[in-house]
Design a protein around this nucleic acid. Structure first.
Lengths: 155, 155
DNA sequence: TTAGATGCAAAGACTTTGCGCACTT
DNA sequence: AAGTGCGCAAAGTCTTTGCATCTAA
């Protein structure tokens, strides 16, 4: 039921919800489908503007909000202030290193036991789309805090 | 090693770090010690200003930053954009309901197994001070999304 | 045709920064 | 006395909102 949507599916969903299919929406959908990791609104905006320079950030926000209501995308808050978005259906957890800020995606199955425990003990239904944990990645731990950013930037 | 600090301990730590002990810092320390849950900067500011109206938010930010460097406090990002702060030593996880925004604190022991798994599998050292998960609390699940805010506000 | 979507600009929430004076040491 | 820390105000980042216009249906 939660397979990664493609552009056509997304377009159909929008249409099916009695919303309008616009060029901006189509482009955002394309960008999200082509992107592999998570993208900030800024990144999405830049990518969209490469094709359609007139599209404004506020429109991106509105489109993402709509896509989220339609359960086409989900967002998460990782280490940085700006939220990141990715397609729904790619259900996974995020491990963000608080030193180098890099994020690793891990299968959400790692959360199975915890999830069951939280439900049983607290009646709390874990949202598997928003799983974000912070800590220190191996590289930064090895480097001993501080001298961490060796190879790249955000993944 | 990580017992909850009291005001005196905090003051000593500040002094020991060759930082100055000011009225504002003392008041922030008091507020944090007296508070039981986590507080936003806004809440801390209001509480501090009740005693010292001249203290400005920017000072609170600077003091919290210093306290965090001294490992006296930690902050976490729960559902809302504003970060929340609490004393270090109160190591626990946070479960935030994405409907009613209420947060429950749970013992971090729930994360033991997951923590071991992440370390073994990814070399990722989970930061037990920043544990924040979102999902739906029992009340909101029972109420069936939407009609959720029945009793109170943020805990 | 007509209501939803967009673009632009302004406002809003949260946080950071610059600067000169006050206060701790 | 010396220099850190503070108050105030301005700027910065991320996000939301208002409104006139445009456009998908």
């Amino acid at each position: 039921m939660s397979t990664t949507p493609d552009v056509e599916t997304m377009v159909s969903t929008v249409r099916g919800a009695a919303k309008r299919v616009t060029a901006a929406k189509r482009t955002v959908a394309e960008v999200l489908v082509e992107a592999h990791g998570h993208l900030t609104v800024d990144e999405i905006t830049s990518a969209v503007q490469r094709q359609r320079p007139e599209v404004s950030p506020s429109t991106i926000y509105r489109i993402l909000e709509e896509f989220e209501e339609l359960e086409l995308v989900v967002h998460a808050h990782l280490g940085q202030p700006a939220a990141v978005y990715h397609l729904a259906g790619i259900v996974h957890g995020h491990l963000t290193c608080e030193i180098c800020q890099r994020t690793v995606e891990i299968p959400s199955s790692h959360f199975d036991a915890l999830s069951r425990e939280l439900l049983a003990r607290y009646g709390f239904q874990l949202d598997r789309h928003h799983l974000a944990l912070s800590g220190r990645c191996r590289a930064c731990r090895d480097a001993g805090a501080g001298t961490a950013i060796t190879s790249g930037a955000t993944a």
